[in-house]
C-alpha cells in the first residue's frame, strides 16, 4: 500500500500565526483556501493533479530555507506556514508581470475581460504597470474548431486544459510542444483543433481556462464567462458510488 492510500490523520498547523486543523492528506493550498487565507495560484485547479508550475502559491515554511509551492506540499503536524510577506508579495507581482510581458494580453479587447483569473490576480496583487519589456511574440489563433477557438496570445501555459482533458475527459487532446518561451499548446500531434480526431467537444478545457486563451465562438469582448466545472465534486461522487 502506498503512503497516499493510508488513512489520513488530523493535524494542527499554523498559517500566518493562526491555528488551523486539517487532514494530513491535504495540501497547504487546500487548507489555506478552506480557511479563507488568500494564496494566489493559476495552475492549480481543484480536482486536477498539481504540477507546481506557476510559482504563485510559493509560501515560506519555517525551517525550510527555500520557498515551497503550497499546492505541492502536504500539511504536517506543527507546520508553520507564512503566506504573506513583503518578499512573497514582491515575487508574486514579478511573476504576474512576467506573464503579461510574455504574450499579448490586451484586456480591453479580450473575450474574458472581467472574467479572467490573470486579470483578477493582477488587480488583487496591485500590479498596475509592467516593468519588463514586452516580448510581443507573433502567435496565431486556431479557430478551426466548430464551437471553440484557441488564442495563443492569451495562453499562460498553466496546462490546466491539458490535465482536464487527460485526467477527467480521458481524451488527452492537448499537450505542449517545444520548450522555454517557445512552448506552445497543441492539439493532437500539432494538427489544427478542428481536425483533431480525439476531441470530444466536451468544452471542459474551455471552461477551465483561467484566461481568454480557450473560448466559445461567437463570444465578443468580455462575454466569455467560464462555467468552472466542479471536478473535485465529480470525483467524490464517482468514488462514493463505486464503494
Amino acid at each position: 500500500m502506498s503512503p497516499t492510500m493510508t488513512e489520513a490523520t488530523v493535524v494542527t498547523l499554523k498559517i500566518d500565526d493562526r491555528e488551523i486543523s486539517a487532514r494530513s492528506d491535504q495540501t497547504v493550498l487546500e487548507v489555506a483556501w478552506e480557511n479563507d487565507v488568500f494564496v494566489p495560484a493559476l495552475c492549480h485547479y481543484e480536482g486536477l493533479g498539481d504540477v507546481g508550475a506557476c510559482r504563485l502559491c510559493l509560501v515560506e515554511i519555517k525551517g525550510s530555507p527555500k520557498l515551497t509551492p503550497a499546492c505541492a506540499i502536504k500539511v504536517v503536524q506543527d507546520m508553520e506556514v507564512i503566506t504573506l510577506s513583503e518578499r512573497l508579495q514582491k515575487y508574486r507581482r514579478s511573476i504576474i508581470e512576467l506573464l503579461f510581458a510574455e504574450r499579448n494580453h490586451i484586456c480591453s479587447v479580450c473575450v474574458s475581460n472581467g472574467h479572467c483569473e490573470l486579470q483578477w490576480l493582477a488587480q488583487k496583487l496591485g500590479v498596475d504597470h509592467i516593468r519588463y519589456p514586452y516580448l510581443y511574440p507573433k502567435v496565431s489563433v486556431d479557430a478551426s474548431h466548430e464551437r471553440f477557438a484557441l488564442d495563443h496570445n492569451r495562453c499562460i501555459l498553466c496546462a490546466r486544459c491539458v490535465r482536464a482533458c487527460d485526467e477527467v475527459e480521458g481524451a488527452h487532446v492537448w499537450d505542449l510542444l517545444g520548450r522555454g518561451v517557445d512552448t506552445r499548446l497543441i492539439s493532437d500531434l500539432g494538427t489544427p483543433w478542428g481536425e483533431s480526431e480525439t476531441c470530444t467537444t466536451c468544452g471542459k478545457c474551455v471552461h477551465i481556462c483561467p484566461t481568454g486563451a480557450l473560448f466559445e465562438k461567437g463570444k465578443s469582448v468580455a462575454e466569455m464567462v467560464h462555467a468552472r466545472p466542479r471536478f473535485a465534486a465529480m470525483a467524490r461522487v464517482r468514488n462514493n458510488s463505486g464503494r
Partner: peptide, 21 residues
C-alpha cells in the same frame, strides 16, 4: 539557460528571456 528552459515554470521561462535581453 534561456534556450534550455523547459518552459514549465514562469520565472525560468520568461525571466531568463528578460535577463538575456
Amino acid at each position: 539557460c534561456m534556450t534550455e528552459s523547459c518552459g514549465k515554470c514562469i520565472p525560468c521561462r520568461v525571466g531568463t528571456v528578460e535577463m538575456h535581453a
